[in-house]
């Protein structure tokens, strides 16, 4: 019988090695989120003439492990607003519930009046900035898309620091490096948005998802894509498959694989 009740159920150092006792602290500093755990990668979005396209793949990674492969990171808010999440998945779920309760409460006040994408973006940015100021961040970068108060296409981003910015095309994470330059060919300026058709926008986003799948090691070929327009509301497809992949270039890569020459 072990007469040290504190030791019951504890791993023994001589068997399991030393256990970092800071994990057992009950007093002392409160540990807040210091790093994301299960994560989603890029989110892409493009404005077009009368709406907006947004896409994100269906992967949730645990470090370099492709942990969950059917995770839907485009979360519709109502028929005129949607949020695309990158970063920590559990924080995404928290925010999803928060937005859900926001929607329920908003409906109590004035039924029929709905929050638009711009309202949603303002709300989210305040939540994110508050949490970073508390040194307890929600580890996400999000794109908020939909229609603004004048029914015009709206696209804006928020991240874990509360930083916000808007642009005719946006991409979070790896997409900021790989997809954004490609998307900017479509519309680099607000004035060019009127010349972008829905078809062009969807094709460009799909092409970027492909490029990201080729080069982003934390990505997946199954993805979600949504189109939001005044007429059609939120048209969300959550189980799309990348088409027309070509891995011919892989043959020409030298130095990483097992080939000798």
């Amino acid at each position: 019988m072990n007469h040290l009740p504190q030791a019951w159920g504890r791993p023994r150092d001589d068997i399991y090695g030393h256990y970092d006792p800071s994990h057992l602290q009950t007093a002392g500093p409160n540990a807040h989120t210091q790093q994301p755990i299960v994560t989603g990668t890029s989110v892409l979005a493009v404005k077009f003439k009368d709406g907006i396209v947004i896409a994100a793949d269906n992967l949730a990674s645990y470090g370099s492990l492709a942990r969950f492969t059917h995770v839907h990171r485009l979360r519709p808010f109502n028929d005129r607003a949607l949020v695309g999440f990158g970063g920590d998945i559990s924080d995404m779920q928290y925010l999803d519930r928060l937005l859900n309760s926001l929607d329920v409460n908003e409906n109590y006040g004035s039924p029929g009046h709905v929050l638009n994408a711009q309202n949603l973006h303002t709300y989210l940015s305040k939540v994110m900035y508050k949490r970073r100021s508390d040194m307890n961040p929600l580890w996400n970068s999000m794109l908020v898309v939909g229609l603004d108060g004048d029914d015009k296409p709206f696209l804006s981003s928020v991240d874990l620091l509360g930083t916000t910015f808007s642009s005719p095309t946006l991409a979070t994470g790896f997409g900021g490096h790989l997809a954004q330059p490609l998307l900017r060919k479509l519309a680099d300026d607000e004035s060019q948005v009127k010349d972008v058709t829905r078809e062009k926008a969807v094709a460009a986003v799909q092409e970027c998802m492909k490029v990201l799948f080729y080069r982003d090691a934390r990505s997946l070929d199954s993805y979600s894509i949504a189109v939001i327009t005044k007429e059609g509301g939120v048209e969300l497809k959550e189980d799309e498959q990348l088409e027309g992949q070509s891995w011919a270039f892989a043959d020409t890569i030298r130095g990483y694989g097992t080939q000798v020459n």
């Binding site: 019988m1 072990n2 007469h3 040290l4 504190q6 030791a7 504890r10 791993p11 023994r12 150092d13 001589d14 030393h18 256990y19 970092d20 006792p21 057992l24």
Partner: peptide
């Protein structure tokens, strides 16, 4: 019981 409490990391 015979060993010191250093056996455990608590």
């Amino acid at each position: 019981t015979s060993s010191s409490h250093n056996l455990y990391s608590f």
